[in-house]
Nucleic acid binder design. Structure first.
Lengths: 205, 205
DNA sequence: GGTGGAAACTTTTCGGTGTATAGTTCAGCG
DNA sequence: CGCTGAACTATACACCGAAAAGTTTCCACC
């Protein structure tokens, strides 16, 4: 495969290296040329596989949505419950920070890419069906639509704040005794859907 | 002031134009040179005021944190309550999308800038004191630290998801009957801290 | 065992971009 | 009138994404 002229596995190598670089420096300074130099190929070689810089980011986002969907599906099939789906969402963000950043930065992507749209649709489907299970569980959600938004927003908020370092730098994280992020997620998102313990049963019809 | 050679108000003009451009195309393609061309000055003129491209973004973030702090303080002094502080947070994000994006993208900023640190500290202080009022109100928060994280995360999550267009594109927003974002915020974040009694916001249809 | 073609790269070239440094304009002031 | 500092320009350089044309290698087919 790798004969000195043909890299042999350039597409995979580019994606892996791109994720590393973006994880370290963010998506702004991400450069196709320096990436190609790292991999020992000419600076136009990645272009053959991805078409453009945007193409690399699209591929990264697609990869990310596919993996996120798989994780959420696995959790659902293991009957992990909504809260654990949320924890998984945050875990994915911290384990694949580059993917996560790119996935939710539409100005970096070509939204017309059908593969990206398919992968995203799959992930969003898992998200909705995960949240739907909460409504079925019949907690205290008299406003299921708001519950969906609240559930997604709280885990997405924790993920983005943690990734951007604002949870630590704000001193908020320290309030929790430096618990790991999964614990933080459980304790925080748990407030949303957990039935209040002392108070009486909320008014149901 | 403006004599054809000296612009007269370049610093302000650069910040205003930068916000426009970033609001439209995001912070990644933001270019000092095209911005200078728009304003009719040489491409190195902005550098005199900001030192570097990063300097412009830092100034934008500083401006943003200062305004956010002021908004939160005004709400607190008007006794708006935590939920309305959250609504104000989201409103700020949608009204100053460029500022908001830059403020929470540390890879775009020079974190050593003392002015930025001061403005951010001020805003975070307001945030914490706003959330602290909830604990004092003694709702059902037996885990106040988690409440702080949850409160911030849910409004930050709504803001980022809305700004990135993911609330609409996912179809989640439509579930709420296309309510405006402040209403979405109240209904969603309201689930977090709402006591069994209906909150001051009337939510009747 | 050669031949055609496609896949995977390289080379070259172009315009755009941030940064650095030296030079220019202009208002205010002694 | 001449000096000085603030605000801006001109020039130069290295890097970058994109485009187009050329090169290498493999492989399927005859």
């Amino acid at each position: 495969m790798a004969d000195g002229y043909h890299h042999g596995n350039l597409r995979t190598a580019v994606l892996a290296r791109a994720a590393e670089v973006i994880e370290r420096d963010g998506p702004y300074t991400f450069s196709l040329r320096s990436l190609a130099a790292d991999l020992g190929v000419s600076h136009t070689a990645p272009r053959y596989h991805f078409g453009s810089r945007e193409g690399v980011l699209n591929a990264l986002a697609t990869e990310g949505f596919t993996e996120l969907a798989a994780r959420l599906r696995a959790n659902r099939e293991a009957d992990g419950g909504f809260l654990e789906s949320g924890v998984e969402y945050v875990r994915f963000a911290t384990e694949r920070p580059a993917h996560f950043q790119v996935m939710f930065a539409p100005t970096l992507l070509d939204e017309d890419d059908p593969e990206l749209a398919a992968a995203r649709g799959e992930a969003f489907g898992e998200l909705r069906s995960g949240v739907a299970s909460v409504s079925e569980a019949g907690r205290r959600v008299e406003d299921p639509a708001a519950g969906v938004v609240a559930g997604w927003a709280i885990v997405h908020g924790i993920a983005t704040l943690a990734l951007s370092g604002n949870l630590d730098s704000s001193g908020v994280r320290a309030l929790l005794g430096d618990a790991d992020l999964s614990t933080v997620t459980r304790r925080s998102a748990g407030l949303l859907f957990a039935a209040p313990e002392p108070p009486p049963t909320p008014d149901r019809e």
